Simulated assay, not measured.
Amino acid sequence: MTAYAVAHIVHLFCAVAFVGGVFFETLVLSVIHTKRVSREARREVEKALSYRATRVMPWIVGGLFLSGLTMAHRYAAAFAHPFANAFNTQLCLKVLLAVSVLGHFMIAVTKMRRGTLTAGWSKYIHLAVLLHMILIVLLAKTMFYVGW
């Protein structure tokens, strides 16, 4: 098996874990911020999730980006000419969105560790990352089928 094939498999597994985690936290777990859940219960859930997320997600994000960088070598020509065709443009846009996701993730982790991650920041970051990830997944598929 080639290094590209291994990186591709690792990338897919990490992407599924990351996108799934963000999807779950953004669209499913947001119910704990309603009046149906007591403040004490919400704090317990948030504490448990925060503990797990800060230990697991950095490894998943690291695996996602390292495998992505490993695969990027195959597409060096596409990065050199980002507007040459639809594939190159979509690939470069996908990478740009991924860098933005990394930036949002680093802000969230930093704020969590400092204890300055407010509910508003958390909601914004989760929603922004979810929208970025939806676009990245869409681009990951359309770049092989959509041309102009």
Rank of each mutant, 00 (worst) to 15 (best):
R42W: 13
A41F: 11
V28D: 05
L91F: 10
H33N: 15
E44I: 05
K111G: 02
A48L: 06
L135P: 00
R113C: 09
V16E: 01
S50A: 11
L117T: 04
N85P: 08
L139F: 08
F79G: 10
N88Q: 09
F79Q: 04
A98K: 00
V16S: 04
V95G: 02
H81Q: 12
L49I: 13
L66S: 04
L49Q: 06
A3Q: 10
R36P: 01
T118E: 11
G147Q: 10
I60Q: 04
L135G: 12
L12W: 10
R55G: 15
E46V: 10
T142I: 07
K123G: 00
T116W: 00
M112Y: 12
V56Y: 08
A41T: 14
V45F: 07
L117M: 11
L131Q: 05
G103T: 05
H132A: 12
R42I: 10
A98G: 07
V61L: 05
M112I: 05
M143P: 00
A108H: 04
M112L: 10
V95W: 02
H126E: 04
S100M: 07
G120R: 11
T54S: 13
S100L: 11
G147V: 01
R42Q: 14
T142H: 01
A5D: 09
I60V: 15
R74W: 10
G120Q: 06
K35T: 15
V61Q: 00
M57P: 06
V10F: 09
V45R: 07
F87M: 03
L29Y: 13
V129P: 00
V6I: 15
W121N: 02
V37Q: 12
L96F: 14
N88H: 12
H81F: 06
V22R: 07
H132Q: 09
L66R: 02
G20Q: 14
W121T: 01
R36H: 15
V16W: 03
K35A: 15
V101R: 07
A48R: 10
V99H: 11
W121L: 00
A7S: 03
L69D: 01
C92F: 08
A108L: 02
T34M: 01
M133K: 01
L93C: 14
H73A: 14
A98W: 00
A15L: 08
F24L: 06
H73T: 07
F79V: 05
S38N: 12
